[in-house]
Design a protein around this nucleic acid. Structure first.
Lengths: 234, 234
DNA sequence: ATAATAAAATCGAACGCTCGCTCGATTTTG
DNA sequence: CAAAATCGAGCGAGCGTTCGATTTTATTAT
């Protein structure tokens, strides 16, 4: 608990840690008091919820399904949320907060160089969504079913990410590194390239494309589009 | 009925025509016999279904919602499908078939030039999904809820589209027009750029980005990434 | 034109079932 | 042995679906 925590890298976001953060954030709703018990069950519940939702969608998942799959009784579930919709919001919140937090944490020296910053953003985004794949798919697919406040948060989180990209592009264009006539539009086009990795994860797995290949491909694709000449031996 | 039909352009796929095709394809399930009556109601039902689904998802839409919104009674709905799942499949089938059909119809002279073919594919894909936006969003979002056969069709349709892109890329690379080391992966990266236009349609509308701007941006982005130098005055 | 009529299309109340959710009884924990 | 955590049967509401009654449609006879 008190141990020193390194700067959060994508890999550090295990389900366990995410559920810990979830517990802290929703202490008012979660009625179980002992942390170690609460986290242990939360992991079971959230894991089952993400799994069931990914198969048929959150709405199609009944709480009886969730109870069976997680091994927590119907009544027990309601010690962790006060409605099915609250569970939805809790998961989404965690995704939004984490994404914004991680992507805003580029080291100063990386941020100073727009070219490196862009590569760092691409790499970090893809690696984070790889580690939290079920979470991100959930947020992406169920976003429309959110209650108003959570929904706005999802949109804001998406826009925040795009802003970070647009800022790096603008800075790079200002220094004559990129041809980015319209940084906002270019950032908007980079986003779906990153999202495809988790939205269509099964496709890339089927084709045997590893995460490193994908990062490299997106990175090359983007920098070529920006007018960066690919690195060649002199 | 007997009138001469031009080569299908994206714009020709009105809801009315799509429902006509839907009727022909599902004559065995649809119990209404008079075509003009059937098409008129199908338009109402499908329009309402796409609208309601886009708001909360297909599963969350009850048939009472659909009945109210479409103006067709509960019993009446069941003259047009034999289960809620069948309605889902009917809409998906129409999307898959139409996409494959339209994108495979590039004129011979266009197909002969990989550069033009690529631009044609980008332009046609975006314009088709613009005209059929609710349909494509539906297929994209509800794909996981499909019964096995319809689901496979969705995946196949997606792969078919990508194959057409990969083929053009391979041809162009062979002629030394593009740097496309891995046509499959490049095609896989182009796809989400096209999908973003309909999946995040609201975002682009909010930002005042017109379809022509988007087509141009994707086209420029892709050809830059492929090593095509942007056209400049000599 | 109009009225009569059989077929087609439409309707909506009713059925059985499953849903989200609650709460008193029971088990586990420290 | 309290307090905390967990359980699962039971509640009312709303679901997808059905089906006999009713209205609309297209055709025929006047």
């Amino acid at each position: 608990m008190m141990q020193h925590q390194p700067i959060a890298s994508p890999e550090s976001f295990t389900t366990e840690r995410l559920c810990q953060r979830m517990l802290e954030r929703h202490r008012d709703v979660i009625r179980v008091q002992k942390d170690h018990l609460a986290v242990r069950k939360l992991v079971k519940i959230v894991t089952a919820a993400l799994d069931l939702s990914s198969r048929l969608g959150f709405h199609a998942m009944s709480l009886r399904d969730l109870s069976r799959e997680s091994g927590v009784s119907m009544g027990g579930l309601y010690s962790y949320f006060d409605s099915k919709t609250t569970l939805l919001s809790m998961i989404l919140t965690e995704v939004g907060v984490t994404a914004t937090e991680v992507l805003g944490q580029a080291p100063a020296d990386v941020r100073a160089d727009p070219r490196r910053h862009l590569d760092w953003l691409i790499d970090t985004h893809i690696r984070l969504t790889e580690v939290m794949q079920p979470w991100f798919v959930f947020a992406f697919m169920e976003a429309k079913a959110f209650p108003q406040p959570a929904r706005k948060m999802a949109v804001d989180s998406e826009e925040a990410t795009e802003k970070i990209f647009a800022e790096a592009l603008r800075l790079g264009a200002g220094r004559g590194l990129f041809q980015a006539g319209n940084p906002e539009l270019t950032a908007a086009l980079i986003k779906p390239l990153l999202q495809d990795w988790y939205v269509k994860r099964a496709k890339y797995r089927r084709r045997g494309i590893a995460i490193g290949d994908y990062v490299a491909a997106v990175s090359a694709f983007v920098s070529a589009a920006l007018g960066d000449r690919p690195a060649v031996q002199p």
